[in-house]
């Protein structure tokens, strides 16, 4: 390993203590992420996606192995690894502006003047199209708007890596699509490194440069990594009929529903969704095969 990557997870294990002895949630997770890369973590519920994210965030400590960010070990949370939480986690007694302000004041208290901070807060709220409702409190705005403010708060910390824990999971499909588009715009502008957890295959393919698929727990690890080589900017409508897009989709679905069936689901019965995407991909002969790597050890060797 000659060049150190931007963000590196090496041999990460984590055990959680339980009354019946330690529970191994993650085992030997290896992952390398480049600067400006958008990586999705996908897998069934309980496979430890959030645990991986929390380890990168510094909220959990790996039992074995560790995380390097630009060559420095990560062992506590910090604003350079801002987190967008699933249920927005805004302070309900503060307005949207004040929520972002809390973060900005904490991160830039030494480097920015009051006026600069104000400008920066407003700029970030503009970025997520929330400038019209800056002075509303979370209970006065919709779920999608709250999540926008949550993203603005994370962006305002000028993070090296932005960690998103199922950011759109609790939203309805239309709002989710809007926010995904916003996120792609922002990502094109700022070129942040993003790690996003998702349950949504379409979301993963649409947004990501790479999709990291995790095996089922316990002792979950990275199963396959799919590189999504769709040109940017991506448009959901055009992609809906794009054979390459559907191919990626099928690859993720096949990983989730064939290779990593959730326990209890009949093994021979692929989901309806899956069969339909299969047929579309076979209809289009020019589809390129997605580059699928089979295991995390391969990735490390590459």
């Amino acid at each position: 390993m000659t060049t150190t990557k931007h963000l590196e997870l090496t041999g990460v294990d984590i055990d959680f203590p339980t009354p019946n002895g330690p529970f191994k949630a993650l085992s030997n997770v290896n992952l390398k992420i480049d600067r400006g890369e958008f990586v999705s973590l996908i897998g069934h519920s309980g496979c430890g996606k959030s645990t991986v994210l929390n380890i990168v965030a510094g909220l959990y400590q790996a039992t074995k192995g560790g995380v390097l960010l630009d060559g420095k070990e990560v062992n506590e949370p910090g604003p350079e690894r801002a987190v967008v939480f699933q249920n927005h986690s805004l302070l309900p007694w503060l307005t949207a502006y004040e929520n972002v302000e809390l973060a900005v004041k904490q991160v830039f208290k030494k480097t920015k003047t009051k006026a600069e901070m104000k400008e920066w807060i407003e700029y970030n709220l503009q970025l997520v199209h929330m400038d019209h409702a800056m002075h509303k409190r979370p209970d006065e705005i919709s779920g999608g708007m709250k999540q926008r403010v949550g993203i603005a708060r994370a962006l305002a910390m000028e993070p090296t890596v932005m960690l998103m824990d199922e950011p759109f999971g609790a939203l309805d499909a239309l709002t989710r699509a809007h926010l995904q588009d916003s996120l792609m715009e922002i990502q094109a502008d700022l070129n942040n490194t993003v790690i996003m957890i998702t349950h949504d295959v379409d979301e993963a393919v649409l947004l990501s440069d790479r999709i990291v698929m995790m095996t089922n727990g316990p002792a979950a690890t990275v199963g396959e990594i799919l590189e999504v080589k769709l040109p940017r900017p991506r448009h959901r409508l055009e992609l809906a009929d794009d054979p390459q897009y559907n191919h990626y989709r099928a690859a993720v679905l096949s990983f989730l529903y064939e290779k990593q069936r959730t326990p209890g689901e009949a093994p021979t019965k692929p989901t309806k969704q899956h069969t339909s995407t299969d047929s579309t991909t076979t209809d289009s002969p020019e589809a390129t095969t997605p580059t699928t790597k089979t295991s995390s050890t391969d990735e490390q060797a590459a």
């Binding site: 965030a57 604003p79 987190v83 249920n87």
Partner: peptide
């Protein structure tokens, strides 16, 4: 206090008093 709010506080590295 919700664990999420505590996590926000940790990510922001708020001092104990803040």
């Amino acid at each position: 206090i919700s664990a999420d709010l505590n996590n926000v506080s940790k990510v922001l590295r708020l001092s104990w008093l803040t």
